[in-house]
Amino acid sequence: MTGLPIPGPEIKINGLWAEGLEVYRGGKVIVNAPAFAVNPGELVLLSSPSGGGKTSFLLALARLIPYSGVLQLGTVRATEIPPSAWRKEVLYSGQPPQPLGETLRAALSLPFTLAARSGTPQPTTTAMESQLAELGLDYPLERPTSALSLGEVGRLTLARALLAAPSILLLDEPTANLDESSKKYVTRMVSRYIDAGASVVVAAHDSPWLTHDRRYTITGGVLEELG
């Protein structure tokens, strides 16, 4: 609303590429992605029928489930860096949202308590408050997360992901359980994050995401780019 840049950690600018990616679940290939790319400053939309493998594909990009093939962040191959360092830059935020903290402050500062971010300073109170306010969560930071609705927890986890400032943000159904006005908060904050140079991949079947740069779909287990 203020239009001022969001105070927070700086985003490093990288793209994400995948080639000949096969995603495994229970030992079987469930998604086959011959080619996938998201460039800095791009919003990529990923759609598929429910249960079509969107979540699995995003999890594989974050190296959270087994895959084979080439996965590369900027000039760095996935095989060259440890999983936690990769996931810090290729951050998956999924459903159902997990608060992971008893208060809003604890939930938002959690990523900065992890070894992967040792040396990265905690976001300031002002940064946390403004991030929440921009997402329509005008609550004191000491509010218990148990007092939030599911939709509010979803926006809290988005605020946390944005404050953690990954190069690539993978959002799984970020507008699930949200009413129309809350969806607007989410799309606006995501657009602003892309304008800062980061990349965002959104998996969704209903789409308030009109201004995407590219669109992929998974049909019959195969990922394709739509023209």
């Binding site: 936690s84 996931r87 997990q98 959690l110 946390r160 953690a164």
Partner: peptide, 15 residues
């Protein structure tokens, strides 16, 4: 769910 969310934020298995 919590554990996968922690890993996704860059946590180690131990964390």
């Amino acid at each position: 769910g919590r554990i996968v969310a922690m890993l996704a934020l860059g946590g180690t298995g131990r964390e």
